[in-house]
């Protein structure tokens, strides 16, 4: 029991950090530009493919740097030649534009790397057990992922709150015309923010690529959950996203371990439940079965109780 609890906690933290890694770039873009980037998960996927490809040529460690940079470039291009023009038509048009991009990127990836998963295996450099606990091993690449995820949090926090660049970014967002009058390149700042956000997605993709499966449906698989975290954490709040990621990761992992259903609960309370009880089918669903839908349940819960999420300051 202790063993299962320890592992559930550990797995929960690992999964939570993976989720945070996925969402941090999105949160950055959203809090800075107000753009909900539907193509974020697609850029994440692109990062996975690029790191695989670059890794084949020059090895894993250089790829860890190069792939995110390439993704950042792609992001800059998307902002410079697409979003900037769509911006005029409002937020809905922006969302739709990135939504369309997500279709495009998926097909482009198919066009280049084919439909099947590519053999993006765990790089030898990080493919060894880090430690052993109760007879189960903990792989090194998960450790690497945790380090990267936490450094993303620190980097973003410092960059925004403690650097001059961060101040300019914040100024350009709240008072674009004033910042522009003071000689700051506001469109340039927007492009930079989008590029950094995309670069972070790319970095997440490098790790996520071999943890999950590098195939054209990858973006679709992680897409929805990313948005749930953004909502639950509070739109645009970095710390909120972090807390939400951890909460969802841990909750979901623990839920998997629970083999009880409403039937068991009602029986424990003294009710008589049989197969012929109305909605038996519904009552008999185990918590473990529902586990992967926990994020969405949480979403609905927050919607009713606290629509602005954990740490959101504004409603949109």
């Amino acid at each position: 029991m202790l063993e299962l609890a320890t592992f559930s906690l550990l797995n929960g933290i690992v999964y939570g950090l993976l989720l945070f890694m996925l969402t941090s770039g999105l949160t950055l873009i959203f809090s800075m530009m107000g753009v909900l980037n539907f193509a974020h998960a697609s850029v994440f996927m692109l990062g996975a493919y690029l790191s695989y490809q670059v890794g084949l040529w020059v090895g894993f460690w250089p790829a860890l740097v190069i792939a995110p940079l390439l993704c950042g470039l792609v992001g800059a291009g998307i902002e410079r030649y697409g979003l900037r023009y769509v911006h005029k038509s409002g937020h809905v048009a922006e969302i739709l534009f990135t939504f369309g991009l997500s279709y495009l990127i998926e097909e482009l990836v198919t066009m280049i790397w084919g439909r099947n998963a590519v053999a993006n295996n765990v790089p030898a450099a990080v493919d060894f057990p880090l430690f052993t606990l109760f007879g189960s091993t903990f792989p090194a690449y998960k450790g690497l992922m945790m380090v990267i995820s936490v450094s993303m949090l620190v980097f973003l926090w410092l960059a925004l709150k403690r650097t001059r660049m961060g101040l300019v970014i914040q100024a350009a967002l709240s008072h674009p015309s004033m910042a522009s009058a003071l000689g700051h390149d506001v469109p340039g700042v927007f492009m930079l923010v989008f590029a950094i956000g995309s670069g972070l997605a790319g970095l997440a993709g490098v790790i996520g690529g071999f943890m999950l499966l590098t195939q054209p449906t990858l973006a679709h698989a992680v897409g929805p959950i990313v948005f749930v975290i953004v909502v639950v954490g509070g739109l645009g709040s970095l710390a909120g996203a972090f807390i939400a990621s951890m909460l969802i990761g841990i909750l979901q992992t623990f839920a998997v371990a629970i083999d009880y259903s409403l039937v068991d609960l009602l029986r424990a309370l003294g009710f008589v439940i049989t197969r012929s009880t109305p909605s038996y089918e519904f009552l008999s669903i185990k918590v473990a079965t529902v586990a992967p839908t926990v994020p969405y349940l949480l979403l609905v819960l927050f919607l009713i109780v606290r629509p602005r999420g954990f740490l959101g300051k504004r409603d949109v």
Partner: peptide
């Protein structure tokens, strides 16, 4: 006897922990 949602699970570690336990 575990049932999990179709093509929705990204991280199977919790299930593996359960199998191990």
């Amino acid at each position: 006897d575990e049932l999990h949602p179709l093509q929705k699970v990204q991280d199977f570690s919790p299930y593996v922990a359960k199998i191990k336990a």
